[in-house]
């Protein structure tokens, strides 16, 4: 690390940050923290109000339960037109102006004339797929490209059905929705945004790991030997390997289920009580799979273990 710090390649960093393809990610890196902060600020305000109302039940009966200034004579609801739409109009104008200026300043990137015989190095997907491309390092394409996205979509669709928490509808709050928010933030920020950021800024030629400040040298050579889990343990024969992998995977997943179960029962008993069996199982499944992904990432990055379950038809 000290060697890196001594020769930090600012030029390389600047080059990556200003590459036209990467500008949306850079913007995302600015916007996400901003909106996180803004959301949590609102949530904090609401939480203070909630604490206040919980402390004084009588107040709860008459209070309108909003953290903003309020007068009884004021309307409790406002019409969309014009009050919402005028704000949206202003936002639309600002966004349009921004887009026009961006379009004038930054031309769409046009690189060398296409040559089907020459592949670029690195050959990167568009920014909205870089998270998935990064995931391909850790998972089999079938898993990373098909199964996991389907699970993600399925999980997102399932949320309304497993969400049994009646609180927190229509207003920002942290204390009333800790599980949902932290779960979602983990799934979005860590399992999507972080992977996209790694795919954009950290992965360089040959899809090798380059810390910020390292020059992207296509001639770099690293020594990395990937092993499979069964090789670490010493299993041979494809049948044994498949069986071992199945046992290992299901074992890990099972362990994660148990872990999630234990944590929910201890820390979120209300949730445990509110959900029925199916909802709870789905919740555990999703949590387990969400935890499985970073576990596998760490196995790959830390121990160079590529696949946990190897079969002739799919790998995990």
């Amino acid at each position: 690390m000290t060697h890196m710090l001594a020769a930090f390649d600012w030029h390389q960093l600047l080059h990556i940050l200003t590459e036209p393809d990467n500008i949306p990610i850079v913007l995302m890196m600015l916007l996400i923290p901003y909106f996180l902060w803004y959301g949590f600020r609102e949530a904090a305000a609401h939480d203070r109000l909630i604490a206040q109302l919980e402390a004084d039940p009588a107040l709860a009966k008459t209070h309108h339960r909003k953290p903003y200034p309020y007068h009884p004579a004021w309307d409790k609801t406002l019409h969309t037109w014009p009050y919402l739409l005028r704000v949206e109009f202003l936002a639309a104008i600002i966004v349009t102006a921004f887009l026009v200026l961006w379009a004038v300043w930054l031309d769409a990137p046009l690189e060398e004339p296409a040559n089907p015989n020459l592949t670029m190095n690195p050959s990167k997907a568009p920014w909205y797929f870089l998270g998935l491309q990064e995931l391909l390092v850790y998972f089999d394409p079938w898993i990373a490209g098909v199964i996991l996205p389907h699970v993600v979509l399925g999980g997102l669709m399932a949320i309304p059905y497993i969400d049994t928490n009646p609180l927190g509808n229509g207003y920002y709050t942290w204390r009333q929705r800790k599980f949902a928010i932290s779960g979602y933030m983990f799934g979005f920020l860590v399992l999507w945004v972080l992977l996209a950021i790694i795919g954009t800024f950290i992965r360089g030629p040959g899809w090798m790991w380059f810390w910020p400040g390292e020059t992207w040298d296509p001639h770099r050579q690293v020594h990395e030997v990937n092993r499979h889990l069964h090789e670490v343990v010493g299993v041979t024969g494809w049948v044994n390997i498949a069986l071992f992998g199945g046992v290992a995977t299901l074992g890990i997943l099972g362990a994660l289920h148990l872990l999630a179960d234990v944590v929910i029962r201890r820390k979120m008993p209300v949730l445990f009580r509110q959900q029925n069996f199916l909802q709870y199982m789905i919740t555990l499944n999703l949590l387990a799979m969400m935890l499985f992904v970073p576990l596998k990432i760490l196995l790959k990055l830390g121990l160079n273990i590529k696949y946990v379950w190897v079969t002739p038809w799919f790998n995990v």
């Binding site: 009050y83 005028r86 104008i93 600002i94 026009v100």
Partner: peptide, 25 residues
């Protein structure tokens, strides 16, 4: 009755400014 800021807040200036910026861009 004090004015409700959500109702009485005027967006004219920001909209005007934004519009000028948009036209200029």
């Amino acid at each position: 009755i004090p004015p409700d800021p959500l109702v009485h807040k005027s967006y004219s200036v920001p909209i005007a400014v934004a519009s000028i910026v948009l036209v200029a861009s």
